[in-house]
Amino acid sequence: MCLAVPMKLVEMNGPLGVVELGGLRREVGLDLLADVRVGDYLIVHAGYAIEKLDEAEALKTLQLFRDLAGEDEPQP
């Protein structure tokens, strides 16, 4: 029920936008976000964007995994 996926905002028209994921396009309500622009990744749930994805944080997390996988010994 609380499933939500990151989708890229490709069009905006007032309180409605169009998001895209892997070629699938869907209408999205932007009523719950204060500041969005085309190109943002949005966390979409039940037809509304509930948050904006923070790409810098996502990359930090991915870098941590890469670093870990590059190590043999567990960190203390």
């Binding site: 029920m1 609380c2 309500g29 009523d31 719950l32 749930h45 039940a46 509930i50």
Partner: peptide
């Protein structure tokens, strides 16, 4: 639903 869904229903 929970707090994730409730704002969408409110909107």
């Amino acid at each position: 639903g929970f707090e994730t869904t409730a704002p969408t229903v409110a909107a």
